[in-house]
Write a protein that binds this DNA or RNA. Sequence first.
DNA 1: CGCAACGGCTAGGTGCTCGT
DNA 2: ACGAGCACCTAGCCGTTGCG
Length: 265
Amino acid sequence: MDGQKEAVANAATKSAGHARQRSTIGFPYTDLKSAIELADAIHSQVGLRDCDDDQLAAWTKQSSKSSTFRVQVYAARTFRVLEGDGSNHRLSELGRAVVDPKQAREAKARAFLAVPLYKAVYEKYRGGVLPPAAALSRDMVALGVSEKQKDRARLVFERSAEEAGFFEHGKQRLVMPGVAYQPDVPGENGSERPEPEKGGGGEPPLHPFIQGLLQTLPKPETEWAATARVKWLQTAANIFDLIYKGDGGIKIETAMAQRSPRPSE
DNA sequence: CGCAACGGCTAGGTGCTCGT
DNA sequence: ACGAGCACCTAGCCGTTGCG
């Protein structure tokens, strides 16, 4: 960075009286759709494993240095579909659900309400009619959004609500899509995690990862290339590492060229 | 404890779309 | 044609964290 140039920029900003105002409530600068794109990219490239900035940026045809990319990553974390530290990224539990077509609808609603600002707006207007754009922007300022960011916050809010299915009954009403989810954000205000099914009895449902994994399993008696099998098994190993306690680190290698004997043989 | 690096976040410019 | 609204993008401010 050119220090002199920066100093000039600082002076210009300060002399013009542009005091930077920071929002006091969390909200993303890009919409839920762009966050899901990142989740999709990670899911399709490395599944449940970690990736870094450069990889994720390349998969989404961006530069890891660009602020657009950084804002997108920040948004994905705000929606809680991605997690990680620094330049490391991985799918969160919510992110895994978002990329699973069977759970996407509920997961998107959860992601939407994971944003403090959106949850506050939802709580305020649930069951009622949303105000016009200008009034909604003002409400967002009252909730803690920076004055200069109110319109952007509202736009991103509206697009995200659309993506999450909250506008299924028209843009005048913010309605939780018909999913079995109670709008609680884990770890906030002592609220508890929503339980997926209550009083259902019987077998607990399989972990979403296991469900997703099983869905990708080819039918018996069909062709399944060894490399694809290794990939599948390695993914399974990674899932086991993630969801089960105990020592992990299982590594599947293509070197196992010989077929293991069938039980009947 | 001070400095540097990093990452979160904001401000604002540019170009496109769409309604009038 | 023109203006408003919007999407996309970059520059860079500022708080946090790690390290010597």
